[in-house]
Every structure is written in structure tokens, then in C-alpha cells.
């Protein structure tokens, strides 16, 4: 079971196979919980969010489409959205973006493979190299789900400036990763 691909485990979960479901939860619990913690900053709330994320994944496993992205990002997107929604409903603030950014660029990772690690390290380095005025709005957009307008209000800068900074920051990251389309 441990050697099965993510897609296979998800397919097993879609058919309500208990072993595949358990293996899927074991494989991803630290990532899902890590994502929830990175946004809500409270272990108790993060565990609620992480549990709900697995329930959503279990319910919608059959609708996962590999053409839309990897299982990991599918699941982490569910987790992120739940974490953001939870904070909004509770009227609570997400984790300080600077703390989150520090965690993102720290390079502490868990179960990734060597090739994944090299790729992530490349991205971490690039993110670390971005000027804070570009990095912060990217983090607020990607992890806190904030619109450019919300970021502008929060940071006290014009909307156009926020959009430009995000675009330029993302362009630099893409350049570094070599994913610019020809």
C-alpha cells in the first residue's frame, strides 16, 4: 500500500476502500495539517480544518482529474480554502504573512523525494530572493486568498501597484524555474 501512487490511493478512496483511505490519510496528514497550521496558526483549529479537508477529499475523490494538477496540490488547495473560510467565519486573522514567508523559505520539508527537494529548493531560493514588497503580496494572495484590492487596503498601497508587484514577482519566479512559455 505504501508504494502505490497518490492517484491509485485516491482512486481506492473513491471506491471507499478502507485500506486505501487509511494509507491516503497517513501519507498526507502532515502536509495537510502543515498547510492548515500555516494559515490558521492554531493547532486546535488546524486539526478541525485538516480533518474536514480529508472528508472533502473523500467525498470528491471520484471527481479528481489528474489533468488539473497533482493530487498533492488538489488536496492542499482544498485545505487552504477551508482554512481561509474558517478564519473568515470566525472573524479571526490568518497567520502573520511574514511568519508564513519565513517558514516557506526555511527549507524545512518532510517526505519529499530528492528530485522534488531540488525543485522546491530552487523555488525557495527564488522566493527568498524576491524583494519583500513583491513577496508579501504573493504570499497574501496564494496562501491567504486575498484579492489584489484587499491586499492594497491592508498594505496601504494603490491597487495598480499591488497588481504590478504580484505580476513582476511571479514573473521572476517563473523565470528562475524556467517555466516561461516560449
Amino acid at each position: 500500500m505504501g508504494a502505490l501512487t497518490d492517484e491509485s490511493l485516491l482512486a481506492g478512496m473513491a471506491t471507499r476502500d478502507p485500506e486505501a483511505t487509511a494509507a491516503f490519510v497517513r501519507r498526507y496528514q502532515s502536509r495537510v495539517f502543515g498547510m492548515a497550521m500555516a494559515i490558521v496558526g492554531s493547532r486546535a483549529v488546524a486539526e478541525e480544518v485538516a480533518q474536514e479537508a480529508f472528508v472533502r477529499a473523500w467525498r470528491h475523490a471520484a471527481t479528481y482529474d489528474p489533468r488539473r494538477g497533482r493530487v498533492a496540490t488538489w488536496l492542499l488547495t482544498i485545505t487552504r480554502n477551508l482554512a481561509i473560510d474558517t478564519l473568515r467565519l470566525r472573524g479571526e486573522r490568518p497567520m502573520d504573512p511574514h511568519v508564513l514567508t519565513a517558514a516557506l523559505v526555511s527549507g524545512e520539508s518532510g517526505t519529499e523525494t530528492a528530485s522534488d527537494y531540488a525543485e522546491r529548493e530552487h523555488l525557495r531560493t527564488a522566493l527568498r530572493a524576491l524583494p519583500p514588497e513583491q513577496r508579501t503580496p504573493i504570499v497574501l494572495s496564494v496562501f491567504h486568498g486575498m484579492t489584489a484590492r484587499e491586499i492594497a487596503e491592508k498594505e496601504g498601497i494603490p491597487l495598480g501597484t499591488v497588481k504590478t508587484r504580484i505580476r513582476r514577482g511571479l514573473a521572476k519566479l517563473r523565470d528562475v524555474l524556467g517555466v516561461v512559455d516560449d
Partner: peptide, 25 residues
């Protein structure tokens, strides 16, 4: 979108509390 997916994967892993897996199952 691919780039933002990669950014999501930078979040450090963190172990939930004892019994989390059982509770989910």
C-alpha cells in the same frame, strides 16, 4: 497556476496530534 501549485508545496509539513488519523477515519 502551475507556479502557484508549486508555492503551495513549500509549506512545511507538521505532524498533527496523536489520534488524528484515527479521528479522520
Amino acid at each position: 497556476t502551475d507556479l502557484m501549485d508549486e508555492l503551495l508545496l513549500l509549506v512545511p509539513e507538521e505532524e498533527p496530534g496523536t489520534g488524528f488519523e484515527c479521528s479522520v477515519l
